[in-house]
Amino acid sequence: MSMEKSSFEPTQEFFDQWLKTYETTCGRLVEMPAIGPSREKSEKLMKGFSSFVNLYAAWMDSSINLQNVFMEAMRRMHEKTGSEMEGEISPEKYKDFYKAWIETYSETFKEFLKSDHFASDNGRFISYFMEFQKRNREMLEENYLKPMNLPTKAELDDIYKELYSLKRTVKELTSQVKELSEKK
């Protein structure tokens, strides 16, 4: 499908150039090990920033791909209805146009969504999004929740794990007691 090839090459090129420049300038500063009394906090902050750049890069890739699909759908739509939609547009024609629009866009997007290309892009985007959310939460916990002595997600997870393990033990013991009492 022609949408695999970018119709947004200038956008892609600009972004690639921006990313390269970032990686060779600010990016290197961000990756630099922190020193001094606040090194742990600074490093976390910088890692958070780095994860944001990764997310931004993945988002840009996905956006450009999506724009290409939209362009391809629009091209197909024009091929299908270009001549029919000339002159006065009646409501009947409008309905036919809507039908063709839904069909063309659905089919074009389905083709794109079926591609391995989309699957890997989507997987990468979700991974970066999760990483970004995790870093964000850690920063929030570090700078707000801990100083205010409020429980963090990690602490709650510890409790949940303990509770889960206790519940499982209780269930196992209850079933053993039941079995033993039935044997009697």
Partner: peptide
Amino acid sequence: GLLHIWAKSLDVDSIVDNYG
């Protein structure tokens, strides 16, 4: 099925570790 295709490239650990 699309779900079968997408699932192959999904970083499941990052989703579960992040959300719980």
